[in-house]
Design a protein around this nucleic acid. Structure first.
Lengths: 367, 367
DNA sequence: CGTTTCCATGGAACCGGTTCCAACATCTCA
DNA sequence: TGAGATGTTGGAACCGGTTCCATGGAAACG
């Protein structure tokens, strides 16, 4: 006679009206109980909660989203998950958001068309109430859409004007890496980084190059343009680039790779050419990915996981915040040098300046 | 006089009724156009599409979910993203699902309470229309909930009875790894794997141990129980376990670690004890994570990314499928040996007759 | 004791889609 | 020419929450 009282074999799930009937109250009262129980007498509250329990009632997320006008979900867009740094950042984001009972809508983009489609999905009006964008530069069109959708958004690993962001000081990082090499007495420095992306503003790789050049200039060291190589962000591409650089008549005694992935390629190149590291060649990376410690790569540490947490916190405060919608608030996280086994003094023969009283360094556990 | 015709400064977003009015048709017609344009005349279709474009109309996901009774989202639950194998699987899942215009709801669980909360979220009735569970054994209660929610689900890296799953043959994998060591002539084999988890059925690590034992038995080699060590799934824990094993009066000439991560710990232990690899000790891993190639670790390759794709495909076919709701369909992906630099013949001095000549500890039933 | 204030409460209207049915137009076939 | 089949269309009802307003009773006040 009654609608199924236990939720066991129920064809149709119980609704708020079923609960109201079961508890002998109105739907408004049940709704109030569901949302914190304000302005409900203790006795009624008990009765409603009992009814909820007895019916195994679970509210419909869609109905709530519809009537409230917004869902309880946060979107995360990122490049494909092949890059370890993206994964590390994502981990931080997920950690923080997951503890705040938000749904996380993950979207990865690889191609331009995917990207466009995603963006439309993302801006669906009642779809998301917040967005984190990892390592993707927004196009002008995308910015416009984001502003129009009035969607709270935080960028991570990029810092477009007019939006809140979490990033590092890549220029300073490039300087830190380069100064580490300079302190060993290197004067012949090479750089390997990503290809420039003209459609976007400065990339992190480009900024690291700027820091490299700054540090060189400050030390009064000139540039050999053949030793500034820009390739696709991949181990093998970097290996090819480094090999070319190292095959020249004169070659650098140290190479700063703008990412650990590319540093790995440089190490490959050194191995192929029979150069010892750091005996013949010092190699410096950037990021401090997990494998950096494994291979003993000297690098600049950036707080990847923490950056994700930070972006998530920033977004949450934005969403709950007063309302100033899309001003910018750029968080810059600290970096530090992580010296390991792939950097050392330049080889004695080319050490015409300081630092060269002893050419034999105590390394040698690397090949 | 019209409601705001461009979507620019609109306070209130355009709804399907606005579109209908603008195009001079009924809402039903607009809905039909939105869902593929079946049973709509070409002329009307044009007019409606024009209206949609002119108003910048975007349908509300929540309203659609509510009236259809189901959203267009697929959930993915996984352990925290610190494990590289989980990340690799996730990548495969996301790749495939992303190309099918599903939203992906990602939830990671770490603690038991998180897990319980997630499960409730996940089973919200109109929340998801599919679920992929990565590397998490379902409890009895969770199975019950899943079945009750009638939610299509695919398990990945575990294979609970009664649910579709994608997995590998871990026992066979353990056998493959062990046979590789046996072929080199090793007769003193150690094993390092995860702690048993009594609350769940057999874990993959336990199955790999079974394969190890099978292969040993088939080769007529007895077991030294001190050489079967089970520790937390972490590099350092494995290092400690391996060190203990290798410090004994007699020590194995080869160790099979049930995961690459643990194999890394074994390598640490060897280094600390001054043992050369593979000269004094062969080390065998499992998984073929990215770093395995970096450190030249011999291992068993399992198709991680592909397993994610496979699970996603399976789920999609389940969701669109006829209806047989939750029968089981266990996909088993192939494995292969990936021999690298950490395995080789046993040291010469111990190459005399098999380990247990004195039969003190090994319960050898050989000879 | 009458009036005002306050609180708990019930329930209609609403959010924006989908679905279904009735209504109508057109076409077909006898 | 009429009956039936086919195809297109409009719009009410519905999905299941939230919100807001009207109501009634208790408490506070003069």
């Amino acid at each position: 006679m009654e609608p199924v009282p236990t939720s066991h074999g129920a064809r149709r799930a119980n609704t708020i009206r079923d609960v109201a009937r079961h508890a002998g109250v109105g739907v408004g009262t049940v709704s109030r109980v569901l949302n914190g129980g304000e302005r409900v007498s203790a006795e009624t509250l008990d009765r409603v909660q009992a009814a909820i329990r007895e019916l195994g009632y679970r509210p419909s997320a869609a109905a709530r989203a519809l009537s409230r006008g917004v869902a309880s979900a946060i979107g995360v867009t990122a490049p494909h998950l092949t890059s370890p740094s993206v994964v590390a950042r994502l981990r931080g984001v997920v950690d923080t958001l997951g503890n705040n009972s938000y749904d996380i809508g993950l979207a990865t983009v690889e191609t331009a068309s995917q990207r466009e489609r995603r963006m439309k999905q993302v801006c669906q009006r009642d779809h998301l109430n917040g967005l984190i964008v990892i390592s993707l530069h927004p196009t002008a069109e995308e910015r416009r859409q984001l502003i129009e959708a009035e969607l709270p958004v935080v960028f991570l690993d990029v810092a477009p004007e007019g939006f809140p962001s979490v990033d590092i000081d890549n220029t300073a990082g490039g300087r830190i890496a380069t100064e580490h090499l300079l302190e060993f007495g290197h004067t012949a420095l090479g750089f390997i980084g990503d290809l420039p992306e003209p459609e976007f503003e400065f990339t992190s790789s480009a900024r690291r190059l700027t820091g490299f050049l700054d540090a060189c200039a400050a030390a009064g060291i000139g540039q050999n343009l053949d030793w500034i190589v820009r390739v696709a962000h991949a181990r093998e591409a970097a290996a090819v680039g480094a090999e070319t650089m190292l095959r020249g008549a004169k070659r650098p005694t140290a190479i700063f790779a703008a990412s650990d992935t590319q540093a790995l390629g440089v190490l490959d190149a050194a191995r192929r050419l029979g150069l010892s590291v750091p005996g013949d060649l010092s190699v410096m990376g950037f990021d401090d990915l997990e494998f950096a410690e494994l291979v003993g790569l000297s690098t600049v540490h950036q707080p990847l996981v923490e950056s994700g947490r930070c972006a998530a916190d920033l977004l949450l405060s934005r969403m709950s915040g007063d309302g100033t919608p899309q001003d910018d608030d750029h968080v810059v996280l600290p970096l530090h040098l992580e010296p390991r086994g792939t950097t050392g003094p330049p080889p004695a023969r080319s050490t015409h300046t300081p630092a060269g009283k002893r050419g034999d360094r105590p390394t040698g556990h690397h090949e």
